[in-house]
Simulated assay, not measured.
Amino acid sequence: MSLEILTSDLLDGVRHGFFTRRGGASSGIFHGLNCGTGSSDQTSIVETNRRRVADAMEVPLTRLVTVHQTHSARAIPVDDAQPLPRPEADAVVTATPGTAVAVLTADCQPVLFADRKAGVVAAAHAGWRGAFDGVLEATLDTMEEMGAARADVRAVIGPSISQRAYEVGPEFFELFFDEDRENSMFFANGEGDRFLFDLPAYGLHRLRRAGVGQAEWTRHCTYSDPERFFSYRRSVHRGEADYGRLISAIRL
């Protein structure tokens, strides 16, 4: 099976892709394109999957740059090759042609950024914690340091958990409400004292408030489509021992 790569018209002219799980070499609960080096999948198989992604992005594997993600608000610049060991961060930015920057997700938001005029691109991993703490804004700050202009940046949120599948408790709602009362717009009532949180809408709100030129979500829900996407929350609900990671990448 060939790779399935989702793209956005907003990023036309820049090679990019939100890769689904289709077309990979992994089997069992990881079947498909598991690119998570932190998973319990076979290391050699994960490397095979990542090499397929690098080939699709038309870069050597050593120039498919990822980071050790920690749900932080840290964004780092990179040049032409994968730093080893992988630095701890949740967004990676480059202005080097032929270098692809990428993030791994399994319900959290993968966000790809591009300022074509300045020749700067970025990839960010934005779960609720990272988005709340400012990883999207940190990514834009780093892009600006490399010559980008916020008004010229286009940002696309890829496959993420949707509101109907993201149930949270009252303490979660209170955290967001205490930070900004307007955040209540991203919550719907669930059963009992539970709420349903709209992570992609919150991400779009943070991006637009930060001044990006254009932003959108691809409107793919990771939880609801097991044939195409890995999902951490779905794996927990199914009682599975581990879960695969999707990869999203962009390059000049």
Rank of each mutant, 00 (worst) to 15 (best):
G130K: 08
S8A: 13
F195E: 00
G119S: 06
V236W: 10
R50G: 01
D141Q: 15
G32S: 03
A131R: 02
D193F: 10
I76W: 05
R228G: 00
L10K: 09
T37M: 14
I5T: 10
P170E: 03
E88A: 15
D152C: 07
A56E: 13
A131N: 14
L140K: 10
G119C: 06
A188D: 15
E145Y: 06
A241Q: 06
S184L: 08
A106C: 12
E88C: 13
G134E: 06
N49V: 03
A102P: 12
L11A: 01
T48W: 08
G169H: 11
Q42P: 00
G169I: 05
S248D: 02
A118C: 07
V168C: 14
D152R: 12
V93A: 07
D133C: 04
V53C: 07
A241K: 13
S44D: 15
G36F: 09
R233Y: 12
T66N: 04
T94F: 08
S26R: 04
A25K: 14
M57A: 05
G213N: 03
E216S: 09
D198M: 06
G13E: 09
R194L: 11
F19M: 04
V92H: 09
R238Y: 00
A215G: 08
A165P: 02
G13K: 10
A54C: 07
N189E: 11
I45E: 03
P83T: 06
M1S: 14
A148P: 13
R22W: 00
F18H: 02
R116L: 11
F113K: 03
A81F: 14
A151G: 15
W128V: 04
W217S: 14
E88G: 08
V46F: 11
E144Q: 14
L64C: 10
P159H: 03
D9F: 10
V93T: 09
D107G: 07
V121K: 05
F19W: 13
I5F: 03
S39R: 03
N34V: 00
A215K: 04
D90A: 01
T99D: 06
R116I: 08
R164F: 05
T222D: 01
R50Y: 05
F230D: 00
T66G: 14
S26K: 02
V14N: 06
T99L: 07
